[in-house]
């Protein structure tokens, strides 16, 4: 199949960027989206052009490194799928595909489709952990955890930190990401001692990074490759309120 690509090109943070059109020829439907870009890039390199820079690593949907807005949808239109797991069989021959980076002030563009997501790390630094130095832990069975809680905590913990939620949110809010971590830890007994303080500091950090506020539009969960549910945001809000009631 053949495709017309309209990709965002931006040489660096200071450049203002523009959409550039490329033709992708002889694309196999078994290729992943990134493999398709690999092929385009190989041609660009040989032509002496700058290949389209994009982040990726594991290529199996777990590291959270890849991510681009494809035809207006973060990670593309296939639900619960990262860009690297999106396959060309879902596109039509002859289609035009627009490719843009995550767009949010706290995620400045580094180059082309590569953005800086270190704001997420700083949100975790603000409290997304349980304070247990190595070697100080009690026996793992000393604290049973209800299976349902463990399962729900796991569901929240599967967030891969890709940032699609921010990219899709009309407010540029990082609520789903932040809430996923807060929920993961607040559902487990191990997370209780720091629970309230954690919610406050993480939410405050999220604001300080310049993300927007959540108005519960649900775009985030719809594009989230791990299907992190909106309940997590309710849980975060509830913990945040408790923190402020203190």
């Amino acid at each position: 199949m053949n495709l017309t690509l309209k990709a965002w090109r931006q040489s660096g943070p200071k450049d203002s960027g523009r959409m550039v059109t490329y033709q992708a020829k002889d694309v196999s439907p078994d290729m992943s989206f990134l493999e398709m870009l690999d092929v385009v890039n190989e041609q660009l390199i040989l032509a002496g052009d700058d290949p389209i820079a994009f982040d990726h690593d594991c290529r199996e949907g777990i590291c959270g490194m890849c991510g681009m807005v494809i035809n207006g949808v973060a990670h593309g239109e296939q639900r619960a799928t990262t860009t690297c797991q999106l396959h060309m069989r879902h596109f039509e021959d002859g289609a035009t595909v627009t490719i843009e980076p995550w767009r949010a002030a706290p995620f400045p563009v580094v180059k082309d489709l590569v953005v800086d997501r270190s704001a997420f790390d700083r949100i975790i630094q603000a409290g997304g952990f349980v304070s247990v130095p190595a070697g100080s832990a009690p026996d793992a069975h000393s604290l049973p955890v209800r299976k349902e809680d463990a399962d729900d905590a796991f569901d929240a913990a599967t967030c891969i930190g890709c940032g699609a939620c921010v990219a899709a949110c009309p407010n540029g809010s990082a609520s789903l990401f932040t809430a996923a971590k807060i929920t993961h830890l607040s559902l487990l007994p191990q997370g209780q001692p720091e629970r309230i303080a954690r919610a406050k500091s993480m939410v405050d950090q999220m604001d300080a990074e310049g993300f927007g506020g959540c108005t519960n539009t649900g775009e985030c969960t719809a594009v989230c490759p791990k299907g992190i549910p909106l309940d997590t945001i309710a849980r975060m809000n509830s913990d945040y309120l408790k923190a402020n009631a203190k």
């Binding site: 239109e77 767009r103 899709a168 540029g172 927007g212 649900g218």
Partner: peptide
Amino acid sequence: RARPVKYVAKKSQAQ
């Protein structure tokens, strides 16, 4: 402020 550069194409996936 959180989204100074708008998307060229943006399609909603929720409401």
